[in-house]
Nucleic acid binder design. Sequence first.
DNA 1: TAGATTGTTAATCGATTAACAATC
DNA 2: TAGATTGTTAATCGATTAACAATC
Lengths: 234, 234
Amino acid sequence: MTVHMELSHDNHDVTGPVRAPLPTVRRLPAYLGLLRKYAVEGALTISSASIAAELGLEPIQVRKDLQITGLSGQPGVGFSVEALIDAIELFLGWDNATDAFIVGAGNLGSALAGYDGFALYGLNIVALFDNDPAKVGTEIHGRPVFHIDRLIDLAWRMHVHLGILAVSSTAAQQAADLMADAGLQAVWNFTPVQLKMTDGIIVEKVDLAASLAVLSNRLATAIKDKRGVHNADE
Amino acid sequence: MTVHMELSHDNHDVTGPVRAPLPTVRRLPAYLGLLRKYAVEGALTISSASIAAELGLEPIQVRKDLQITGLSGQPGVGFSVEALIDAIELFLGWDNATDAFIVGAGNLGSALAGYDGFALYGLNIVALFDNDPAKVGTEIHGRPVFHIDRLIDLAWRMHVHLGILAVSSTAAQQAADLMADAGLQAVWNFTPVQLKMTDGIIVEKVDLAASLAVLSNRLATAIKDKRGVHNADE
DNA sequence: TAGATTGTTAATCGATTAACAATC
DNA sequence: TAGATTGTTAATCGATTAACAATC
């Protein structure tokens, strides 16, 4: 007879941590948003079927996804809304706010500084950086703008590990290198530039071009299809 | 003996068009950007191996991806830079500029109106819409701001089919419904809201939360790992 | 107990990668 | 011809989905 040890949340072995599937991680914020809505409405539990129905997914996919948080549901009942919120927040590191710098105080940087939704994602913008003397010393959406030369100093002093890159394409790589020198561990890249970074620095790109490509291709196909139907009709 | 008809770019059959793999479509803009750089430098041909090396991909993946454009390379030589640019632009519908409206002239909408990179993606912002009387009648980055009530009228008159949604979360669904009423065929959704749209309207979401989730999870893991090493060392 | 819902195990699906013959 | 590189066919990999026993 064999005894099976229970190894729930067994997220690493000798060779290193087992990476969570990326599509799953990307869906977690949608779950979290829905769960928060349910929590406000006073719901105590929720089933994978209801989550799936609201988000247009399959119940089995919801259950598979939620497993990576390590939380178990109760057969016949569902998942505890509160426990699930906590588990997802913990998994994403959104249980405590993460301080972040915005590098580049132009149109996009300013807009991001003014985006109040970041609080829901555990993100706290503490300052912006720019090389424009006209901007340095001012405040944007209540956050101070410092000269880019002060990035290294202030990153160390304020223990900031995350930088949001929102400069022009031409300045992107140089600014990213400076962020690396400042000891930032992660760069959220809003520029269209494919950054070349030293290993160990986490880079996540908000790829507008990729997103627009999907939209454009579908639109081009839809218009082509419509023309095709037209021709067939006439 | 069987004669095989050549059916390159055979993208649809009786049951409808074969969808191009989404990951492939998302990588096309990166190829396009690199190819344009090569074109400026005067290169006539490029091999899948060089493209792969520059973008950190596998040569075979590059060749597979490029096949959906319908363009063939030349064995022993590579791909024509110019022909490949044209093929990708055509596939994405970026060969002719697409006019677009921005709905929401707040921080984000204004920033998007000022983003000059869109020209490279075949996108032409022609106007913004808002319900704030203080903004209506002004110009943002050279584009007129109209009252949201004029959306339906102007969309028809100007033959605009694409709308960029950049309003607040609370206004998102209502604005999206209006865009549908205005006959827009596609919505590029910059809000965190999961829109409920009638079938046939293309919606592509720029999912900041999903992107940040990937970053946060990696950052949380990295920090946890570091702590683990520390403990083991001490 | 009966009904609801979970988590596991296996099957399917789609994307990536490997091997290599075909071609310039 | 020899070297380089493509496109095809098959193998692998990872994510999604299906079936169902286990559990509340």
